[in-house]
Design a protein around this nucleic acid. Structure first.
Lengths: 220, 220
DNA sequence: CTGGGCTATGTGACTAGGTCACATACACAA
DNA sequence: TTGTGTATGTGACCTAGTCACATAGCCCAG
């Protein structure tokens, strides 16, 4: 495992062997239990993380305790933005939480810098990850500032439903996904239920009509 | 001018001469008139831009026509995020407008990539710019999602006031700064005026009590 | 198998913010 | 001086967020 984790990352498979070697040698495998806070205000990330397994949720917490999920880092991806802030000097405002048990490769700052210098392939990998995250942040700003909650909720339900059309989250957790309040979610879900688009039980929502939800989620 | 623009950028002054040379040679000076749309959806940026003079406003426009300013790029700074998206493959969602006449240096993608590879100094410059922008985006998300309009408006007025305590913007422009509606701004300004914190005339606001505004803008 | 106790959800009342429609007011040019 | 375009004012209404508290489901200790 230690020897060949680079193959877990499509963007790194073509890495020149002369470069992959030192990379694997200088980086180190870390395991984190679910729920671990990986970084946050006052707890700067210390290395470039590449996830082998699990997911990390990056979110913002407001003064009043409300939360909004910014993005998730999944297996095969990197904490790109985190690293930007690591390489630069600014304090990172958001916090990262291991949603599941996580296995990751930690690349020290110095090694990261060398890699960037030496490998065009690695640069592409890093900048591509960057651009995806930033684009996504723009989308979130757009939605939070300009989009209706019912539409965003319908989108989120469709996005989070498993292959049996179920979403196993509490209203509070859904509210955190969207950066709104629990009561707002409860009321919207109630309305969806009244229209027979979903059914709910404690901690779980079942989609009854993806079609209607999609209609709401898409063009008005 | 062409020969020594690198000195305009504190982060580039220490650039190794062997590197600064080709950089200056391969990049090109561009001038843009105020109001020019530099990039936007369907109009990808084509080069890494370093501003010599003027400012560029980067903003998001919603379907319904509402706008929100994401950040400004001023002289001596780079369109860092733009470039991330340029280097990666994603479509950039935001648009950049020249607020004033702008002079800038355009560094082609290839040259940029070479520079990143060859100069630790340049890497630091780019990543630092990145991290500042990203941190700022997080702050905007936080404010849009969780902060009150009156507080944000007070902050914005203080931020945008000149050294004679005047803000020369229309209510509509202020609304765009904050990503809210013009009527909301009009009403808030009215309330500030009622409290004698500001006075207003068409297209201009004068701060009468920075202190009170600061009190509102700071801790509640 | 049952009663606390914890967490999740429901709900009314109220405040803040956004939308729509339209009324005024101001500035500048013809 | 009078249009004309832009800026601002305002009421009515709707959506979203807050607060306070009521219920309801779940699980575990006894």
């Amino acid at each position: 495992m230690h020897a060949d984790w680079t193959t877990h990352f499509p963007g790194l498979r073509k890495l020149e062997p002369a470069i992959a070697g030192p990379l694997v040698e200088n980086s180190k495998l870390v395991k984190l239990a679910a729920g671990t806070r990986i970084f946050g205000p006052g707890q700067s990330p210390e290395a470039y993380l590449l996830l082998l397994d699990g997911t990390v949720r990056v979110q913002q917490v407001s003064e009043t305790g409300r939360e909004i999920v910014l993005y998730r880092v999944s297996a095969g991806e990197s904490c790109a933005l985190t690293t930007a802030c690591l390489m630069g000097y600014e304090e990172y405002q958001a916090e990262g939480i291991a949603e599941t048990d996580v296995q990751a490769v930690a690349i020290p700052r110095k090694t990261f810098d060398n890699l960037i210098a030496q490998s065009a392939e690695f640069r592409r990998f890093v900048f591509t990850a960057f651009s995806m995250r930033v684009t996504n942040l723009f989308k979130i700003i757009d939605e939070v500032a300009f989009s209706r909650v019912d539409i965003r909720l319908a989108q989120k339900l469709l996005e989070l439903a498993d292959n049996e059309d179920r979403v196993s989250l509490t209203h509070q957790q859904l509210a955190s996904e969207l950066g709104t309040a629990r009561e707002v979610i409860s009321r919207q879900l109630h309305e969806f239920q009244r229209r027979n688009w979903i059914s709910t039980t404690r901690g779980e929502i079942t989609l009854l009509s993806r079609q209607d939800l999609q209609k709401l989620a898409g063009a008005p």
